[in-house]
Design a protein around this nucleic acid. Structure first.
Lengths: 219, 219
DNA sequence: AGGGTGATGACTGTCGACAACCGTCACCAT
DNA sequence: ATGGTGACGGTTGTCGACAGTCATCACCCT
């Protein structure tokens, strides 16, 4: 009963709304890693047909939030400590490209301002809000690079990033996402020092990897 | 009539086989960019239900091979010249990470040997075979890095890479995929010179980007 | 008691049908 | 001739039902 019926009045399709509802339910911890996601149960909870939730589940599977268990049954995915470290290494590579592109762009200063503005959302709200702000910041970083394929690649990992962060402990994570951690990235972009910016991003990701990989092992 | 009925005797699900058939039909040029992919027509050609091809199409949409047109109708995607350049920049970042990981690994020599062995497939067969060998080489590069998330990220772009290459001219592309182009990557890995390896990969991708972006504009 | 075995239940895989939507086009009134 | 309008065809969105499959478990035979 952790997924709520669709009741919004928007004009998007039931499939899209079911997808969003399921994704939200999983990343917000409504379902724990390893939980079995039955099509019939979800369908009845969401108030839609099985085929509709089926498509949504397949989408989530491609996003990496859900993984196939025995006999095609789907379970909520959980990344191992190793995978978490791998994930953040890839993020470092992608976001390293992002800062490279931004620094080499003539709109560098404008981008830095936009990022600094986005930093303000990082300090307020509850845990989920901060996670949202953190992911929003990094996604914005990719967007400002002006490389649509980079955004696509980042989004392909977004689901996995989300579950990893949300599964982390809610006590230690805030410090992980504090503005202090992100400000150096902006500073480096602003000053145009590419090498510094790259190492800052690298370090940011390495620290996050250690943090979440440790939390992952504990469970 | 460019997609053929499923007649294989394997035990995979109809959805998986339809997915493979559609992907193959698109990447092999059976459908041209912009072509409308009607669910009913594909279903009848493949000999399966609409719901089944529907799931396959959604999968392909997430892969980027297919894009949504008006009223939810799906068309074969085509990347613009700009997107092609963006795509290869992301590849450079990802495969740059791959060579970094390989060089820092104790199994560096073994990886180099494996790669060199894979190079042999690059010089034979028809155009499609060579494309397959080329993509196989680069995927292998990512795999040898031992980073599963890197492989995931690369695969997320694989479809777009495929259509881009297959849409290129079959005359100029072989030289693009010649063994000479890839051997320097292996040499750099073998010698352990990280900086050299990175610049080689960067250059490899930049050359490919120019090549395919130009071909893209011509159409 | 132990091991094979058949019923059972809960899933997913797949299908065909209905409904809603939108573009198109012929047709009519002005 | 032109603008509006209504029917029509094609396409996707969504649904409910049937069939196949696998794990579980009680049960029977030895």
């Amino acid at each position: 009963m952790t997924v709520e019926p669709l009741s919004s009045l928007d004009r998007s399709t039931l499939r899209e709304r079911s997808l969003a509802a399921l994704r939200s339910a999983i990343t917000s911890g409504g379902y724990r890693p390893g939980d079995h996601l039955g099509e019939v149960e979800l369908a009845s909870h969401l108030g839609v047909s099985r085929g509709t939730v089926r498509e949504a589940l397949r989408h989530l599977q491609q996003e990496g939030l859900v993984t196939a268990g025995n006999r095609g049954m789907l379970r909520v995915n959980r990344l191992s400590a190793t995978e978490v470290r791998e994930l953040f290494k890839v993020r470092a590579a992608l976001e390293g490209l992002a800062v490279t592109e931004i620094i080499n762009s003539p709109r560098r200063q404008e981008a830095a301002d936009t990022l600094r503005h986005a930093l303000q959302d990082l300090g307020s709200g509850d845990f989920a809000d901060r996670v949202e702000a953190d992911l929003g910041f990094h996604l914005l970083l990719c967007r400002l690079a002006g490389n649509s394929m980079l955004v696509e690649a980042w989004r392909a990992l977004e689901g996995r990033i989300r579950v990893t962060i949300m599964n982390g402990d809610a006590e230690g994570s805030p410090v992980m996402m504090a503005g202090d951690r992100h400000a150096p990235i902006i500073d480096a972009i602003e000053s145009g020092e590419l090498a510094t910016a790259l190492s800052v991003v690298e370090e940011h990701m390495a620290a996050a990897a250690d943090h979440f990989a440790a939390a992952d092992d504990a469970v």
